[in-house]
């Protein structure tokens, strides 16, 4: 799981203006495993992308590598 979190963190760091503020937390909830991506609020748009396209791409890669059922949530660092 930490491999996935590290990979996701790397993928996100490469596409934002504030890579140092990217943090991925790995949570286990009743709904299963979740990778929570924290970014600077100014980078939220970049990570989500037009129509959610970039967030979808991130989810697709994580599913491909880690198997289905892993949630990827994007949140800003204020939360």
């Amino acid at each position: 799981m930490t491999v996935l979190a590290d990979a996701l963190e790397h993928l996100v760091r490469g596409i934002v203006d504030n890579p140092d503020e990217v943090r991925v937390e790995s949570l286990t909830t009743r709904r299963g495993r979740t990778l929570e991506v924290h970014v600077n609020p100014d980078d939220l748009g970049k990570v989500i992308g037009r129509g959610g396209r970039t967030a979808t791409a991130l989810r697709t890669v994580i599913s491909g590598v880690g198997g289905r059922g892993i949630r990827v949530d994007v949140v800003d660092t204020d939360r």
């Binding site: 993928l11 490469g14 596409i15 396209r53 970039t54 979808t56 791409a57 991130l58 697709t60 890669v61 599913s63 491909g64 590598v65």
Partner: peptide, 8 residues
């Protein structure tokens, strides 16, 4: 997945 990796 390839399309997604390419996009990123």
């Amino acid at each position: 997945v390839l399309e997604a990796v390419q996009e990123l």
